[in-house]
Design a protein around this nucleic acid. Structure first.
Lengths: 339, 339
DNA sequence: CTGAAAGCGCTTACAG
DNA sequence: CTGAAAGCGCTTACAG
């Protein structure tokens, strides 16, 4: 029950002294060569005067569209996806589109149990952090893949994670580190495979470089356990390269549990640069991934696709952010240890 | 462009051998006494067979609704609002509603510059963490206030923050603390006023209880500075009660900067229980606020309101979560200090 | 250059 | 108990 009934295109037509068709043509931007400039101007003035806003429901009904886009993400709880949604919703709103969110139905229950209205009618989908061939029933729907790697015959927007990881490894190598431990996310996604590969490559190219690896779930406790295993193995690493900031938080805990000072005894790096990175002590050296930009660029690409264009693949570079959790190896000795 | 044109109510009518009206009546749940049970059954079977889903655009046009609800929050960057949105969107989707998000236009620019489509047509608004009299142009729109305190003549859903704060202060008092420092959010919201009041009341009731207070923005750096001021004043507190978890992270930094062990030399508490709380070392004693539940209950209330009911005010209790950041005062002495 | 008309898919009086 | 018809507000051939 809207407070006051809004003006319709009919009202605008009457106010401007023209027909509804003319109003639609002018306001829809399809008037050049079909309506005189003077008439167009008076229609626009009338619309402005009345505060006219087209009724989307009527528009959608007529056009057979929904002006709704579905954003699918692996999980809602990771701090990473909030900004992705924000970015996507911001550009969507600018074009009169809404965004609904759904998680990938790997929760065993299957699509039917998906908490959100994923079976509602949509015009397109933004699929984040998933393999292109997992699109499933959205195969038929215009789609853009986010953070899922190139290929798959679908437009993509990705982060330059390999470059980001090389920047981290390079920074660490320059500091003098040779013994690397990789606390890897045990999640089968392109982004983590790319990180692992880039790290392995860079360490292998380093004279005397050695890399050990352990895998964990993306939560603090699991990460701490994995870090502990790496740190207590013979010939332990002098740096723990973590697949994301949350995992790095777990690595901090492992370090403290072993009485290791960060970065004196052990350097630690993250990935993503979420809020947590500066809340930790010492503040975390990490790679900033422009998550909001990912959502925004993804939505832009999807809108282009819907308009019949063929958007080019895009790569958003990450940025190495050096803070206080990295230092030359062994510098700290035992002085920073706590009992 | 949907892959295949979806079946309409006309198709269902034909399949069931009845009229479109009957289909609408049956599927709309308004058939009792107007359609025979046998007919109703056959309509439902036909709809099922065809996989019929009503066209929302047509429905909205006919009914004059939008099936869209606006969620307004103070800021999108705080980790607290993600779950609120999730909870709201979950119950909204169950009723065929969408949720759009907008932030309060305190960004100087005013409503016109609001990033989201806040001037799009909506059926109702969920207003979070704001004074009821700040509803502005949504005064006319059905609204539910979230986390904004009771009163204002609008249905409300709130957290039991006063009780939560009393639980924290009680826990601390039982541990033996008497000198309290309050690192308060310098934000004029009901929830923070309620926290301050509850803390002051509980400390005042404690024999020998004394309370100092300093104010900060809700970010780590500002919180660290405020904590530092409290800690370096004469007769410093033995515990820092922080208005939220992020502020507590700042307090941790202040403690480390001063060489104070947590909780040996100084206890610290937070509020909210976001992800950060367990990522910190030591893990944070805090009050868990059911943010997702706030969104869900708020949306339920709004849907009730839209259905013509008058939802009762609701209060969602917080839960004290005791972790490792609190201990009896002075226990640590100087042993935990770092140089 | 402009207008009259059809129709998108619903829901709801209204008539029977 | 059931159906024919109107109309929500748009956009787009079509006619002039």
């Amino acid at each position: 029950m809207p407070a006051i009934s809004r003006p319709t295109s009919k009202d605008v037509a009457q106010e401007a002294g023209v027909s509804q068709s003319t109003v639609s043509l002018v306001l829809g931007g399809k008037w050049t060569g079909r309506v005189s400039p003077a008439t167009a101007r008076s229609v626009r003035d009338a619309a402005e005067r009345l505060g006219y806003r087209p009724n989307q429901a009527a528009r959608n009904l007529r056009l057979g569209t929904t002006r709704t886009v579905l954003l699918m993400v692996p999980t809602l709880t990771a701090p990473f996806f909030g900004p992705v949604y924000t970015g996507a919703a911001r550009v969507a709103a600018r074009h009169g589109f809404g965004v609904v969110v759904s998680t990938w139905p790997d929760d065993a229950e299957g699509p039917a149990e998906s908490p959100f209205g994923s079976d509602e009618a949509i015009d397109g989908v933004l699929a984040s952090s998933i393999a292109a061939d997992a699109l499933g029933r959205f195969r038929e729907t215009p789609a853009v893949m986010l953070d899922s790697g190139p290929g798959g015959g679908v437009p993509t927007v990705d982060f330059g994670v390999a470059d980001g990881m090389r920047a981290i490894a390079g920074h660490l190598g320059a500091l003098g580190h040779r013994r690397f431990g990789h606390v890897a996310a045990g999640v089968d996604q392109w982004t983590f495979r790319a990180r692992a590969e880039a790290l392995a490559g860079t360490v292998a190219a380093l004279p005397g470089g050695v890399l050990s690896r352990d895998t964990c779930a993306i939560d603090v406790t699991s990460a701490k356990d994995a870090a502990l295993r790496l740190l207590t193995a013979p010939g332990p690493p002098t740096v723990l390269v973590c697949d994301d900031d949350l995992i790095a938080a777990g690595a901090y805990k492992a370090a403290r549990a072993l009485g290791l000072d960060v970065p004196g005894d052990l350097s630690i790096t993250g990935f993503d640069d979420v809020l947590l990175a500066t809340a930790l002590e010492p503040e975390l050296t990490t790679v900033r991934l422009p998550a909001e930009e990912l959502g925004a660029q993804g939505m832009t690409a999807l809108l282009d696709l819907l308009a019949g264009e063929r958007p080019e693949p895009r790569v958003l570079p990450g940025e190495l952010v050096v803070r206080e959790s990295t230092a030359p190896p062994g510098e700290g000795g035992d002085k920073g240890r706590r009992v």
